[in-house]
Structure formats: C-alpha cells, structure tokens
Design a protein around this nucleic acid. Structure first.
Lengths: 343, 343
DNA sequence: CTGTTAGCGCTTTCAT
DNA sequence: ATGAAAGCGCTAACAG
C-alpha cells in the first residue's frame, strides 16, 4: 500500500494562491465575510481538482463538535421498533450529523459506553430509545442526572417520564389502548379478555388505564385482565387455557403483537374461528400483521415519527443551547384488519 | 448552562506531578516504556479524581484513526436482516470501535455519504451489507475501485463477487437451496413448484442452481420454476393461481419467506391444508416463522455470523495492513417446522 | 524512567 | 477582502 499524503487546506490554499483562512471561509460559507467571486471560484476549483476533504476529526477538535449523535437501546428491544425509529432519526438529522450506535456496556472507563462516548466527545448528544425500565429500574435516575445536572443533551424517546426538566417524546399508549377497547365495545363486544405481560411498566399501566377507561364509560362491559408470562412455553399454555373458555368472552386485546400471533396460531390449532368466534386486537403492530391468518387488527405505534421528533428535539438542543425541555406525546393509529368484527 | 472547562491530560499531569507524556504512556498502556508502579498509580488516581476522558477527536487527529467503522445498506433492505447483522458486527468489533450508520445518499461533496465519511476520516473502513444489485447495477464497479485502487478497507457482506482482490463474506445460497430441495425430494416430493422473484440477481441464480442440482441428481423429479412479481397484489394473484392447480405438484419452495407467508395465507383462505396437501419451504427465515400457521420450515441465513465474520475481517484489515483479501462463504441451516411433511 | 516538544488539520481572532 | 498565527488536546520521537 503506498503511503497516501492527505490533501490539506494548505494544499488547496497554495493551489488557489490564497491563504488557508480564505479556503476555510469559502468552503464553510462563513457568514459576515465577503469574498470576491473570482477567489471563491478559484478555491472551489482547486479543492475539487485536488480532491480535498476536510478532516472531520480536525474540525471536531477545533469546533468542539463531533457532529454525531448516539443512539442507545437495549439489545432485546423488538427489532422492528428499532429500525423504524432509526429511519425517522435519519430523516430528521440531515446530512451533517451521523448516527453512532451505542451500547450500555460498561467500558474500560467504568461507565456505560454512551456516557464515555459523550465525555470523550465522540458524540454530541444522546437519544435513548425505550429502555425497558423493568429490566433496569435504577438507571432512570442516572439518566435524569445526566440530563439535568450534567447538562448532557439527551432526548428520551418512548419514555413516559413526567418530568418537565427533560426532553421526552412519548407514545400515547393510553389513548391507543382506549381507542382499541372503544372500538371493540362499539362493535358490540361485552366480555373482553385483556392479555398483558406479567410485569408492570409505565407503558403497560398506561395501556391498562386506557382499556379500563373505555370499559368504564359503558355499562355492563366485563373486562378480564390476564397477565401472562413472557416465557414462550408458558405463554402458549396460558393462551390455550384461555381459548378453552371461549364462551366466556367475545374479544381479546393483547398488549403485544407477539401475544396476538400466539392467540391466532393456537386458535387455528383448536379450530376456533377468528374473528367469527373471537375478535382479536393487538395494542402494537408489526410488519407481519398482514401475514397472520386472519390479518391482525392492530393499534400502530408511530415509530418513524418517534425517531423523527426525537431527533428534531435533539438537533434543537445542539444548535440552540437555550432550548427549553419539552414533553411531546405522539398518537397511535388504529389499523382495522380481519381479526376483528362486530357482534 | 455554565461553561464547562474540559479536563485535559495536562490537568492530570499537573495533579499527579508528572508530564503529559507520562500520562499518555500510562493511560494508553504503551508497550516498550516501563514506568514505576507508584507513578502509574498516582496518574490513574489523578485521572479518576479529575474525571478525565481523553478527547477522542484529538486522539483521532493525532493517530489518524477515527476508531469507527461505517455500515452501508440500502434502505429497503429486509429489516430483520439488518439488525441481526448489526448484532454480529457489534460482537466482533469490541469496545474500542464504534459503528456509524451510513447512507449512500449523495452529500454536499458530491459523493455518497460512506465515501465522504471515509475521505473525511469519520470512519476507518466500510462494511457493505447486501446492496441489492438489481437496484443499482452499476455501483459494484465503484465499490471494487474503492477497494482495490483506492485501497479503502472494505468488506462486502452478503455479496457474491468472485473477486480475489476484495474481502467478501458470502452466504452459501446455493447450498441452502440445494439442501431444501434435497430435503423435499428425500421426503418423496416429485413435483415441485419453485417461486422466485421476477428479477435476476446473483443470489437468485445461486439458489436456482442449488435447487436444480438437487433435482437433477434424482430421476423423474419435475421442477416448475415460477417467477412472480414482487408487487404485493400481483404476488397474491399469482399465488392464488398456483394454488388452484394444486394437483399438479406436492411442494412449494419460495425464495423469500414473505412469499411463503403469502402462500400460507392464501392456502388457508382457499381451505387447502398445509402440509397435508402441499409442503411449503422458504429459502430464508425470519422471526415470524414460528407464528405462521402452520409454522414455516425454512432455510435460515447465518446473519449474525455474517456480521461477525465481516467485522472480524475488517478489523484485521485495519490493524494489519498486509492482510490478504479473503472470500468466506457461510452455510445456511435447515430448520424443519410444520409446513413440510413426507409423502 | 520521565520530560520536552513538534506537529496532526482545522477554525478564527486580529491585523492589514 | 485576505493573511498570519494561535491553539484545540493529544501522541510519539527524541532527549536527558
């Protein structure tokens, strides 16, 4: 491999017969300095001719900006969620910023990677994507501290923090669940099973409240809340048990689409016709919902928008240090398919 | 926001009563310099006390290494594929390198983002993940040029380049397809439908060859190759048409799992029993395969390993410039589920 | 064994 | 309208 000599702004300056400063002014389109059109042209041409690319590390060192943001998410996060979110982020940050994936592994500095990255100036800010609180309860306080006390530009996406001091873009799980339940009730369902995971998170609380509120607004609706294990085998067992009592209800709401898939699968197995015997609706969607049989009615989470809005928020913080913290809540959308019908 | 004065190695040096060089030596554990244990301790303690984090941009500028790698993939890539690959990459690059997501959008430099990132030293090398050639045929030559002529450290993951000059980690689509077809034949299937996308890629050619070779090894097997449109509606139409002639064959192979989902769905709709009337197998897998009814038999692609091996390769190139290019091929694994049975 | 010092490539203030 | 020069924080060759 032959040693490649980097083309620097000095080279461009020489080639164009100007100084490095001028090159910088022109290439960065600096406001407040006016430069002759002819010089401008010369410099731009010289840069092109030599194949000049400013060294981003040198720029970063000088300007104290890495021009990168970090995204942190637990590994075991639902995969779909992650990618759609990422797409949203990309769409909002533009060409100048890049995305660095951060883990929360403790590194050689004794801190989680995202923290070290920030401290080492590898990233300018952090986007937290729905860390699952029940998995690491205590961390939230650390995050809050980082955001409020340490003044690290952070946006929490898909968090429900209720804290006016931090930037938070939340999904309205409450309203999504409310819509889903209302939809069922409007369609004449009066006995409804509600399948939730067997642990409690803010998210699940919101959903539960949404479902309950919808139910309570109507007389004589019976809601049977049933926490089920997230363990695969146990989940299946529980679903079979529930399906065996199908006469006691006419509709099932599930917190996750995965649960709904299991319901649909087992219903087939047991020869129970969906939606004729039971309607099924999930409080989250995925790309597979159009392939289940029957196609699954869901309440879709606004993941792309989540990424977009969170990133916008973060960009604001980075460009204008006086931005006030904001809590935003994004609505879900009900997507009616074939797994639900009226009575 | 109060102006935060960065803690530099100078500060640490002062605090510990040594010079900046010593601090650097100790903190970077530089080989070939021996330093008194007591000094070492002093410095480490000082660093901890002051909360010193080396500025990665300064380090990068100095060492000429960004300690980041870029990953490039078309947007419309299957989502699952992306994340599993990423997991593999993460597992291989360790704590010191980070992952930057790159698009192939042309930026203000007039080049695709990944190229500019490299030229600007934001990344040290590039991982290309299965760009879909049929979407941008001409690009491959650019990549090859970048890799061979420009000497940019690049690894092609899920490419079938047949080029000993570049690093390439490929998936053995041929063998996967061969296995799948053989499996069907071994189970007594003699008339097989083979559903492919209606465009031709290296990947599909490999698969086709695999299926054909398996078929040709046996007497009297009839293979009906059927390209179908990737347009959703047309795909459904085609599948219905095919299912209507179910007496003419006993098994279906699909290139993609998405196609198999459609087959399964439409079979339900038409009251055709899978696997009793028709066996179905897909030449790629996804997380959803255990939720289809019946659960789908697939040939799983080694995506995690793909990420892992590609990243290992890239790491080699970055640490040892004399690494010779290598073409690696990773095997698929047949995962038998319920959509196939013997005759 | 430890310190001095010269840059890495860039931006930006100040001078002209 | 343009140039000179300081310095961001670090590493590493060289000195001692």
């Amino acid at each position: 491999m032959k040693k490649f000599k980097r083309v620097t702004s000095m080279d461009v300056a020489k080639e164009a017969g100007v100084s490095r400063a001028t090159v910088s002014y022109i290439l960065n389109d600096v406001q407040g300095v006016s430069i002759k059109e002819s010089t401008k042209k010369k410099v731009i041409q010289a840069a092109k001719k030599l194949g000049y690319y400013p060294d981003s590390m040198a720029v970063a060192l000088k300007t104290n900006k890495a021009m990168s943001i970090g995204i942190v998410s637990k590994r075991n996060i639902s995969e779909q969620r992650y990618i759609k979110f990422l797409d949203g982020v990309k769409s909002a940050i533009g060409d100048n910023y890049s995305i660095i994936l951060c883990s929360d592994h403790v590194d050689n500095f004794g801190y989680p990677e995202y923290y070290s990255y920030y401290k080492r100036k590898k990233i300018d800010g952090i986007l937290f994507l729905s860390f699952q609180e029940h998995l690491a309860e205590e961390k939230i306080d650390d995050y809050l501290h980082m955001s409020v006390e340490e003044n690290i530009p952070i946006v929490f996406a898909d968090y429900h923090l209720n804290n006016q001091m931090v930037n938070c873009v939340d999904i309205n799980y409450y309203h999504g669940a409310y819509m889903a339940a209302s939809y069922l009730i409007k369609n004449g369902h009066e006995e409804i099973i509600y399948l939730t995971p067997d642990f409690d998170t803010e998210q699940e609380q919101q959903r539960r409240k949404g479902v309950e509120d919808a139910v309570n607004e109507h007389k004589g609706i019976k809601l049977i809340k049933t926490p089920i294990s997230t363990d695969n085998d146990k989940e299946i067992e529980a679903v079979i048990e529930i399906l065996s009592k199908k006469d006691e209800y006419s509709a099932i709401i599930t917190s996750w689409s995965k649960m709904a898939y299991t319901v649909l699968y087992q219903a087939q197995q047991l020869n129970i016709s969906i939606p004729n015997e039971i309607s099924v609706i999930a409080l989250a969607g995925s790309n597979f919902d159009v392939y289940t049989y029957p196609r699954l009615t869901t309440c879709n989470l606004p993941l792309f928008e989540l990424g977009q809005k969170s990133a916008e928020r973060l960009m604001n913080m980075l460009t204008d240090t006086n931005t006030l913290p904001l809590n935003i809540t994004l609505p879900c959308k009900l997507k009616e398919r074939d797994s639900t019908k009226g009575i």
